[in-house]
Design a protein around this nucleic acid. Structure first.
Lengths: 342, 342
DNA sequence: ATGAAAGCGCTAACAA
DNA sequence: TTGTTAGCGCTTTCAT
């Protein structure tokens, strides 16, 4: 075990008091330049590092940010959460914070985890993902005055008391739809999730908007289903059977898009040809997951790394000084990654 | 902010000393049953939780386990690391630990991160992934007596002083090869990484062994290249061009396998058909990533969740009491997930 | 079986 | 500008 260097060791070696060492580190401007230099030299020489636990006891700040790591997903959609965590950890380190992980299944389990964590490790803040209508987690934290940001807007509250960062999903599906329109497609369907999910409704809206802009309606052109490959395939088949005129499909996720690809065939190289013959239907997914890249699926890409760094920056600002700052809301634009499928 | 409940509050409400509360929580057997009950009731009622920072100052134990989260990968191979982290976090919580994240690029950056972390947050242990020959991280930790486990065996040291958990990669490729042999394939190639990587050599060895068992040699049947899709495609094309008799390919990763699929075509449904005609070559990958599932690639699956829980259990045992226990080495068997590609 | 005292390493408040 | 004092919440002695 590495021998422990305390502030007292530094003070002794530098010939100053412990307080002066502390000041040098935390309020350098209050220490004479010469003294500061001497102290910093000793700090360097001895490899001193402030002990977080001790500092935390005095200041009440742990410099820990808690984030949930999702239970293993289908691996397609899960990748967004993982990329987000990567980004958070990197930005956090730069801002002098560390990310503490926890797991929870459902809102209530998650608020229980908040309670545990706050009682024991006292993270300075939480970062939440996948906000939804009537999110009990945000109200729990807000009621207790615990700082937090969310990746995902406050769906039920346009003037939320907390910061959020989100990606403009509607803009994404709108861009995808326009891209298809520009290619000459006129009957463009949509595969999404059942109404009521903020994210899903938002993505459907972008598609609808793009069609409306060129005077096209949406009746009979969309299907809603569970977010997985098999349901996606089923829904796509149903939609295409009912309306053989459809030549392109915008999907709310890569999972659904992958399912759709099983019944559709994009122009150019044949991607997923089942045993039977297929229609040349273009497909666009959402999230630009590794699977999309692997199979050549055109997909809407969310700037996850930026979302993560924005979340942390908003948090850090408020944590380090600007406690009373009004909440900020950030809506970042996605981009369309065009591949062979559409 | 939640009002803080301290051990003193509990002591007062239960009519005992703070010490008795502490004993009730840490050494229950030393407290009279009746007293214990009373204290626990109050703990429950007040929602008391021991403050980690304070406890850490006394005991020197943080109940924090540090693990690295990889910078964003190609998304194919990265998924193993993410699944591992999921598993760690879940098991850790069950054992009363939390996972603290850090990032680092390269061995030296990682040992620097160790130093930082140990000085500041004092994690009780580290969990390392992707060990390799001459791993500077393990020697750094070992020299300083910091507890750690690795996912990945100690390639350079059969009698390593630390615990490790690994998956028997050779057994995986051997099973894959046997599976292909059982299907009637006789000329089975291998796509792997340049010699010298423990993991890669191990996987190649399993393939070689399976062929040797049935009296087949390996000359001219393998190619080594960088672990990515394009190099995999290139190597596969080269291999198949040189030896048109090859009917199946075992690959050291799903990335390579995906590349191979671009030039091969599995029996059954056609998966990835380029513009040109293709040979019906079976392909098996390694890691069973989401991409493998999505495209119907047969792949060797590592029991990542078990690896993670084993790592943590070994650590927890040594941390909570059995400090002097001799190191344990665990080699877990992988399994073959058969899909359409082979 | 229970309680009192001490101190882990740090920094806010105050004194010099 | 620098040093002294006190105490954050807990657990390890040691005394009762």
């Amino acid at each position: 075990m590495a021998e422990k260097v305390t502030i007292a060791d530094v003070a002794r070696a530098a010939g100053v008091s412990r307080q002066t060492v502390s000041n040098t580190l935390n309020t350098p401007e209050v220490v004479r330049a010469e003294t500061r230099r001497r102290v910093l030299d000793v700090v360097e020489e001895l490899g001193y590092r402030v002990n977080q636990a001790a500092r935390q006891m005095r200041t009440g700040r742990s410099r820990l940010i808690a984030a949930r790591i999702d239970p293993e997903q289908d691996g397609i959609n899960g990748s967004v959460g993982d990329r987000f965590l990567h980004g958070l950890t990197e930005t956090a380190a730069r801002e002098g914070y560390r990310v503490l992980l926890y797991t929870a299944d459902g809102d209530d389990a998650e608020t229980a985890a908040f309670d545990d964590l706050l009682g024991a490790y006292e993270p300075d803040a939480f970062v939440l993902m996948a906000t939804h209508h009537g999110d009990r987690r945000t109200s729990w934290l807000a009621e207790r005055g615990v700082p937090f940001v969310t990746f995902g807007r406050a769906w039920s509250d346009p003037a939320a008391p907390h910061c959020w960062v989100d990606v403009d999903g509607a803009a994404g599906t709108e861009a995808a739809t326009r891209h298809l329109l520009a290619q000459g497609h006129r009957r463009i369907g949509f595969l999404g999730w059942p109404e009521g999910s903020g994210v899903g409704d938002d993505r459907r809206e972008g598609w609808r908007r793009a069609l409306a802009e060129v005077g096209l309606g949406v009746t009979g052109l969309h299907r809603e289903t569970e977010d997985d490959v098999a349901p996606g395939e089923h829904a796509a088949r149903d939609l295409l059977d009912r309306d053989p005129g459809i030549t392109a499909l915008v999907c709310a996720s890569d999972s659904l898009a992958l399912g759709a690809l099983h019944v559709a065939r994009a122009p150019g190289p044949a991607w997923l040809a089942g045993g039977q013959s297929h229609r040349p239907v273009a497909v666009v997914g959402f999230d630009d997951t590794p699977v999309a890249k692997a199979i050549g699926l055109t997909s809407v890409r969310q700037p996850i790394a930026e979302v993560a760094s924005s979340c942390l920056r908003l948090l850090a600002t408020r944590l380090d000084g600007g406690a009373g700052a009004p909440p900020e809301y950030l809506l970042l634009p996605p981009s369309l990654v065009v591949r062979a499928s559409g």
